[in-house]
Write a protein that binds this DNA or RNA. Sequence first.
DNA 1: CGGAGTGTTAGTCG
DNA 2: CCGACTAACACTCC
Length: 280
Amino acid sequence: MPELPEVETIKKRLESLVVGKTITQIEILHPKSFQGNVEQVIGQRIVALSRRAKLLQIILENGYSLLIHLKMTGQLIYEGATRVGGGHPTADWVKKLPSKHTRIIFYFSDKERLFFNDIRVFGWVRTLSPEEVKREFSKYGPDINDANLSASYLIEQFGRRSINIKQALMMNQIVAGVGNIYACDALNLAKIDPQKAAYQLTENEVVRLFEAAQTVINRGIEKGGATVENYVHVDGFAGQYQSVMLVYGKEGQACPNCGAKIIKMKVAGRGTYYCMSCQL
DNA sequence: CGGAGTGTTAGTCG
DNA sequence: CCGACTAACACTCC
């Protein structure tokens, strides 16, 4: 269930394995997971991998792209000389593949395979022309770790929203890549109450939140993403952001900032961990 | 066993 | 345009 750092990690891991290889076949086990035209992909060499927001882009020689969104439970598992996995951590990472959650299998000319697994089937793989990719990306605000993103943009965006700041921070149309884990941690690091209306943040608070969000996202990328839930221990599979997590999943534990007990509550329908004593 | 909860987001309706 | 609510779906946990 990846956010930006997890997708970035998958991108980096897969890059050295698939760039330069030719896709010889695609086996679609679950039609809903694949939206596009297989003809645009078969026989094409992969020239590059890219990431925008939480989307992974596989760029093909003919200019078309495979765009992949893992949503909550998607996984990409590459099986070559070794197995490399990323995405929602389950036993599928180490089980025999295909598993019952395998929706799509990509075959390469060297007989190696890439499995797209997805338990809840929210995720998808699409084939898109360069124009369609552009249109898709234009629906998103700048990535949270985009070097060109400025605090003034966020001050302007948050300033005209009456929704709570946590929800605003997770809106990909405003700024892309921040999901529930990193939103909780960023708000704790910036000492801001997740329930506060976005427009009520002072400029200083927006700057603080912006910097905090970049800090936790970059930390996530450095740690290879987070691996929580049904973590299956296999070398190289799991990111380690959870070892430096601030508040996510830590109900009842001490706030890393002030030591008070971390509270769990619902904010806009999502589980939210925060510290009532220092996040104001 | 029933119901809630899950690292996401699109669509609908007011 | 904005925001609240719901659905898409499978599985685990209490």
